Simulated assay, not measured.
Amino acid sequence: MSTAQIKRTDWSGFLFILPYLVIFITMIVIPLFWGINLSFQKADLFGPGEFVGFENYARLFNNKIFLQTVGNTFYFVLLTVPVLVVIGLGLALALNKEAPLQNVLRGIFFSSTILSVTVVTLIWRIIFIPNDGLMANIFTQFGWEPIAFLSDPDWSLISVAIATIWWCLGLPMMLFVAALQQIPKDLYEAASIDGANKMQSFLFITLPSLYKTIVLVTIIQIVMQFQLFGQALLMTQGGPNNTSRSIVMFIYDAGFRRWDIGSAAAASQILFLLILIAAMAQFIVTRKKGEQI
């Protein structure tokens, strides 16, 4: 093969990925560096910014509301991600059968995922109505005092987490179902012949085989749940007393209500860094555990 043919082959391969590279650079790389640049400026929506260095970051770390939103967001991630992984895996194990009923149930559990955030929050606001909602009626039937879930500081973020888990459960379930169907049945047959029970098969065949999928689902959910916005905005408006306000809500308020683009950009970079650290820490820890297995 001549040098000219090799060059043509190389360039033809590059042309296949060129559309993706253009979109990636335009939609991700350029906005990322633009946001980093804005985070070092005092800027609004109506004119050029003024370079202020790390002033925006210093203001954020001295802002009690911002620090509270960071804590709220971490708490929300802890409330949702483990539950989504565990329940998603449990549903996948229960529905990993080729039968009409199981197929219908998969569709039912996945159906909530396709709903918009507006519909989801409307459903759960009705459920959490203090006196006449579904939860209030259940509490009354058992003789308990109904809880004002959305206006109680101790329950507001938990209520948003419950709605989010119901909304997002379909994706982890389907990913686990797909992974379970890739495990060779010969492994279970061999284990059964050797006298292994169902629990031993689950611990020594199923879980190790699902390791990469568990890591994938966990990282996807970490990235998604750190970006809490619509549910909290529509269900609680970030209240009461900012107990359900997330970092993204703070960014929205700073950028589009107070027109403080510099602070909003700085908060965005902090959120990006937190997501990156959390996802990488989860990946490193689970990879080490996987190597031990």
Rank of each mutant, 00 (worst) to 15 (best):
K42G: 08
T164I: 00
P172K: 00
G13N: 14
E291D: 07
D260N: 14
G107W: 01
Q227K: 14
T113I: 08
I275S: 10
W11S: 15
L45I: 11
L45S: 10
R106A: 06
F226L: 08
P100R: 02
M280W: 05
V22R: 15
F226S: 08
F139Q: 09
V104S: 14
F250E: 05
S111H: 02
F202R: 11
F46T: 14
V223T: 01
I251D: 04
A279M: 06
F149R: 08
Q225C: 09
G88P: 12
R258A: 08
A161H: 07
L89Y: 02
S12K: 02
F40S: 14
F176I: 11
N103W: 06
M27T: 14
G238M: 05
Y211I: 08
A179T: 04
F33I: 06
S244Q: 08
K7H: 06
R125I: 05
I162F: 12
V22E: 07
D132G: 07
G230A: 15
T206M: 09
D154I: 03
L234D: 11
I23W: 05
L274I: 12
K97N: 11
S111R: 06
R8P: 03
I183C: 06
I23H: 08
N242P: 01
I126P: 03
I261W: 06
C168N: 13
I108P: 05
G90Y: 00
T140D: 10
I25R: 10
S116F: 04
Q181G: 05
D132H: 09
Q237T: 12
A254Y: 09
S112P: 00
G230W: 01
G230L: 10
Q200V: 01
N137H: 10
V160W: 00
V223D: 04
Q182N: 15
A161D: 09
A58Y: 13
Q227V: 02
G47F: 09
I138G: 10
P146A: 07
G107P: 07
N103H: 11
A58V: 14
K64H: 07
Q221A: 04
Y188W: 07
G53C: 13
I158C: 12
K288I: 15
Q68G: 13
K97Q: 15
I127H: 00
A136L: 06
E291P: 00
L91E: 01
Y57V: 03
G230K: 07
S268W: 09
F128Q: 01
G170F: 02
V285G: 05
P48W: 00
S116Q: 03
S151D: 05
S244R: 05
L105K: 03
N56L: 00
L78P: 00
D10Q: 11
V52W: 07
F202H: 07
T236L: 11
Y252M: 05
R8S: 12
I193Y: 09
P240D: 11
A92N: 04
N62K: 10
N72V: 02
F54W: 13
R257M: 03
R245V: 11
F256A: 13
F61E: 06
L273P: 06
G133N: 10
S156W: 07
R59F: 03
L95P: 12
A190I: 07
Q269G: 01
K42V: 02
T206G: 13
A281Y: 02
V85Y: 09
F229E: 01
G53S: 13
N96Y: 03
D152Y: 03
V285D: 10
Q182P: 04
